[in-house]
Structure formats: C-alpha cells, structure tokens
Amino acid sequence: MLLYPGATAAEAPARQHTSRPIVTGTSVLGIKYKDGVMLAADTLASYGSLAMFKDVTRIARTGSYTLVGASGELSDYHALLDKLKGLAQANANCDDGFEHGPAEIYSYLRAVLYQRRNKFDPLWNSLVVGGFKDGAPFLGSVDLRGTAYEDDVIATGYGSHLALPIMRAKWTPDLDEGEARALLEDCLRVLFYRDCRALDTVVLSKATATGTLVSDPYKLETDWTSASFVAPKAGGDGDGGW
C-alpha cells in the first residue's frame, strides 16, 4: 500500500494498525452501593451488526478483589485478561501476603492502554474496573486512549448515553444490594430496548468485603406493551423513532 499516490518504494508499505474493532461487546455498567461495587453487562458479542455469539461473559474476576468488565473488541479484552492472569500469578508466586487491589489494577490497565495508544495500535476497549479492598470500594473506567477516571456510577458505550442519566438520577450512596441490582437491571432493560447491539441475557457481578462474584448469565424480564412499542408510528408518518 502506498502512502500517497506516486510515493517511492522506500516510503511504500504503510503499516496499518487496528483502525476499527471487529467482534465487539456493548455497554458495561457499574455502580458503588452500600456493601461495595456492582457491575453489569449483557452477553452479546456482535460481528458488526450480526449478533454472533450470545453467551459471552464480559465481566471477569482478577485476583481476590477486582472485577474487570469490557466493551469494545473482545479479542483485545481477552488479551488483557491474559496479562492480568499473569499479574495475579506473579502475586501468588511471591506469597508475601500482598496482592494488587482494584485501584492498582485500574492504574495498570491505564498504563497499558495508554502505552498502546502511543504506539498508534490501541487495544480497542472501554474498561470498567470495580473492586473492594481494605474496606473501600473502587470504581473506575479506562478507555482505548488511556483516559481514566473514577466515579460512583460508570457506564461505557451506549450506556453512557442511555443508562447514565437514569443511574445518576436514581443513585444514592446507601443503596442496598437489592436496590443496586434493580437499578442496574432497569438500565440493562432500557439498553436492550434501545441499543441494537444489546441483549436481554445479562451477567451481574459484585465486589464486597467477602470477595468478588460473577453471576451466571440470566434473562431479563421485558415488557413490550409500552405505547411506543405497540404503535411505533403512533399515527405519524415517521419511521417509529422519536
């Protein structure tokens, strides 16, 4: 491939890095609540607009304290999980009573993603890191440019448009586990209704003082009796959208 028309052979083969994701996952949601942190995501892996795999868990445990969820390119996510597995094993090998906490893993991922972005070969993910260590909950997000921030509620992908406003409106720091779960499931439901790359099969996970847990995939109850679903055009001539 030539850099530009008429380029010489020496200038010729321009090197191409990842310029778009191939197999992707959509939003990941995370909130802090009374006992710790809860993360949620659906289990769909899309190949463009094709719903390719419907049972892919996009939230994983790493070490004893941390959960990492990802939207974006799933192969990049798996490569990152491999790195984290190595990190956890290195901790276990040392056997000195120390293990990286969620804040350190978040910082590590930030460093890795930022380094790759500087090589113009990014790992195409938006990550959500949640965890609980030494009595403190942690929730942070890292994207493919290495941009990183912490917050009480976090959503990636379409979730940042569709779910985040709901989460911000309803979130309080003293949500109990049931309330936190209900809030996340409400958001996942809205995403399933509105995001064409979302699924009603989801995974929920939590990090608390007793450790981390990732649920098996389960199906959300949905309700399609809403007026805009029953009569999408609502008498108008539009295509059913707003």
Partner: peptide, 12 residues
C-alpha cells in the same frame, strides 16, 4: 508508581 499508582512492595 507510574504503572500501579502505588508504592512498590519492599520485598519485591
């Protein structure tokens, strides 16, 4: 400190 945002464990 840059990578993990935390001090290095002395033992390591």
């Amino acid at each position: 400190r840059y990578v993990y945002g935390a001090p290095l464990q002395g033992a390591r």
